[in-house]
């Protein structure tokens, strides 16, 4: 693909993103609030409570099997002190993102939507388990990053549609990775399209990094470790045949990432066996989001 068509394509993508709705105001307020360490549970719950639909959804999610708290949580402020700030933030983000991307004008994407979210969920569950096994506490962050890692594919195959049909054909005919076919046909791939949308939505920096660098973590800088986890989780989800991201090829694992993650094969075996149980819990989470 030559330079001019590539630039035209970029223009088209940017226009498409322009048309994608912004996330609700409450998400931005929450982001600001969360940047302040002195923020209290009451402040967070007051911001969320302004949006009745969101409040209802949050209460439904915090009481779901995914979190598994043994008593009923009645108020948002209780939810904050029980689940913690990060869980609530991630929950609000995911809910809002799903509201925007899952049901735009009721149209269907070019690929199998159910399989796509299954793939994302598989990646999210794997990322969470890998993080846990590595002894890090930020399991919720990596879960959300895994869930949203292929956000760019929503842009290309749901909002862009026409031009992307060829990508899927090329990938299927020549057994290419989707990202390779995208580069060849469109001159722009789903990691870049995803980053553009994440920027527009002001998503947290780590999640944006996971979207941009999950196929090649090397340039991720500070987020190299997180991006490596998502990179490996994406590959695991494909190996375990959980859903489909639009292609059926398994990408090569980045050597440096493997080194940094420093996982023994013994640990890998444990991770693989735990992903399945985690998937079941995560499915409940997604079902609630889609309802």
């Amino acid at each position: 693909m030559d330079r001019t068509t590539c630039q035209e394509m970029l223009k088209i993508v940017l226009e498409v993103i322009q048309d994608i709705p912004t996330l609700p105001n409450v998400v931005y307020h929450l982001t600001r609030l969360m940047e302040n360490p002195a923020t209290s549970a009451l402040q967070v719950s007051e911001v969320i409570s302004r949006d009745q639909a969101l409040t209802a959804k949050v209460l439904k999610l915090v009481n779901s099997a995914y979190y598994g708290f043994p008593r009923k949580i009645n108020t948002v402020s209780q939810a904050v002190v029980i689940l913690g700030y990060n869980n609530i933030r991630n929950l609000v983000f995911t809910t809002s993102v799903f509201d925007v991307v899952v049901k735009p004008n009721g149209s269907e994407p070019l690929f199998n939507k159910v399989k796509f979210w299954e793939h994302s969920l598989g990646c999210a569950a794997s990322a969470k388990i890998i993080t846990k096994k590595m002894g890090f506490k930020k399991t919720e962050e990596t879960f959300i990053a895994g869930l949203l890692h292929d956000l760019g594919k929503i842009v290309l195959y749901h909002f862009l549609e026409g031009e992307s049909a060829e990508v899927l054909m090329v990938a299927a005919e020549r057994d290419l990775l989707l990202i390779e076919a995208e580069q060849e046909v469109l001159g722009i791939n789903h990691t870049y399209a995803g980053k553009l949308l994440a920027d527009k939505w002001n998503l947290p920096r780590d999640i944006t990094a996971a979207i941009s660098f999950h196929h090649n973590p090397l340039p991720a800088g500070d987020n190299f470790r997180l991006c490596s986890i998502i990179h490996l989780a994406d590959i695991l989800s494909r190996c375990l045949n959980i859903g489909s991201g639009g292609d059926n090829k398994i990408p090569l694992l980045n050597e440096r990432s493997w080194e940094v993650l420093n996982l023994s094969w013994d640990k890998m075996k444990h991770i693989l066996s735990e992903v399945e149980t985690e998937m079941e819990k995560a499915q409940a989470f997604i079902n609630l989001l889609e309802a």
């Binding site: 360490p37 209290s40 549970a41 402040q43 913690g84 700030y85």
Partner: peptide, 14 residues
């Protein structure tokens, strides 16, 4: 007191 259970304190105590 709302100033006790802040996200900063949650991080620190954990």
């Amino acid at each position: 007191d709302q100033r006790i259970f802040t996200q900063g304190n949650l991080r620190r105590l954990t």
